[in-house]
């Protein structure tokens, strides 16, 4: 069986070396695996974005390199790797070079918490969702630093906008997660998925869950800096915003991290609202690794909605963005939490 593949590797390693060394090697292997997932996910999502953009914009998108243009992003990545790393003379070089790694590390750390299927789940701790939000709160610093250390006014404005935007909308993301946690009764991601075996949470929690889902989608778009909340890199205003001065691979880090963050946000939405890796009505739950397929389908569906937003909506202005968060989303969220608590207390959930 395929399920045994991990155990087989474990035993093979144990046969070759001591337990301690095997443990370290396994950790290294998992890390390498996740790095691979990171890169492939990023490239795949960039490709998907371009195809979706083409679909919305009456054009084809990349379709020459490889089947359906699948290798186009790989070609682009190779180009970026081979490019010169430029920077400004007056930049704070130390922080300037450090900044992309904040973004990429936090994205990678969050990825470890994503349950791709029942079998593939690297870091399943009891405070999973809380850990996810706390890690992603550090990612802001990377963008902040990039904006500041570039010593470019456009970058600086972009960086300041990020700070304001991320701090504000993290609240909404967190609150809508908390609403769903009230319903699920746990923060552990695998448990949240298990609870949904008899029905996805979006159906279980009906009205408050729907509100939470909408708020989560809005705030999630803002968290991943995508249109209509892409003020950070608003290209018609700021050129490229915080990463104006980055080139080559340093730029690619931001680019990849943006798409991986999109994936993480979508995964969280899938876990919280659409039953994670579970198949509808449990039709394929007995087959190992089938969860991977269902999880993938659902995540791509949510990602498609995000991309739909991006290629349809115009951009907000910074004060409108803050008004939306503090005057609308936050009060709605607070009321919604109370509503959800009442529902759970009165047993009105399905």
């Amino acid at each position: 069986m395929i399920l045994n593949i991990f155990t087989d590797i474990h035993e093979l390693l144990l046969g070759l070396m001591s337990e301690e060394a095997a443990h370290i090697l396994e950790l290294v292997l998992i890390a390498a695996g996740y790095l691979g997932i990171f890169a492939i996910l990023g490239l795949l999502l960039v490709w998907l974005e371009r195809r979706v953009a083409g679909f919305f914009q009456l054009r084809l998108g990349p379709n020459r390199v490889g089947p359906m243009g699948l290798f186009q992003t790989i070609a682009d990545a190779l180009k970026l790797v081979s490019k010169e790393l430029t920077g400004t003379v007056k930049a704070d070089m130390q922080l300037y070079k450090l900044a992309p790694y904040f973004v990429i590390t936090t994205a990678l750390m969050s990825l470890a918490l994503i349950p791709f299927s029942y079998e593939i789940h690297a870091f399943d701790i009891n405070i999973g969702l809380f850990f996810l939000t706390s890690v992603s709160s550090i990612g802001v610093i990377g963008i902040f630093l990039a904006g500041w250390a570039s010593n470019n006014k456009y970058s600086l404005i972009g960086g300041m906008r990020t700070g304001i935007q991320m701090i504000s909308y993290e609240l909404s993301v967190g609150m809508s997660i908390v609403t769903m946690v009230v319903l699920a009764g746990t923060l552990q991601i695998s448990e949240i998925v298990e609870i949904q075996k008899d029905g996805w949470l979006i159906f279980k929690g009906h009205i408050p869950a729907l509100i939470a889902f909408m708020v989560f989608m809005i705030a999630g778009t803002a968290e991943s800096n995508r249109t209509p909340f892409d003020l950070v890199e608003a290209e018609s205003e700021l050129g490229a915003g915080f990463h104006t001065e980055y080139s080559g691979m340093n730029f690619a880090y931001y680019f990849l991290a943006e798409f991986v963050n999109l994936f993480i946000i979508s995964s969280v939405a899938v876990v919280l609202f659409f039953g994670g890796w579970l198949s509808p009505f449990g039709i394929t739950d007995s087959i190992p690794f089938a969860g991977l397929f269902w999880f993938g389908i659902k995540v791509v569906g949510v990602i498609f909605i995000f991309m739909w937003f991006r290629w349809t909506f115009p951009r907000f202005r910074i004060d409108q963005l803050l008004t939306l968060e503090w005057k609308y989303l936050l009060p709605i969220n607070i009321v919604n939490i109370v509503l959800m608590a009442l529902m759970v207390w009165l047993g009105l959930t399905f």
Binding site: Q57, L58, T227, A234, F313
Partner: peptide, 16 residues
């Protein structure tokens, strides 16, 4: 105009 406001798709529609 759409592109300046942030809606990138309008550009393609206009060009059609």
């Amino acid at each position: 105009m759409g592109m300046d406001i942030g809606a990138l798709t309008t550009f393609m529609y206009g060009f059609r």
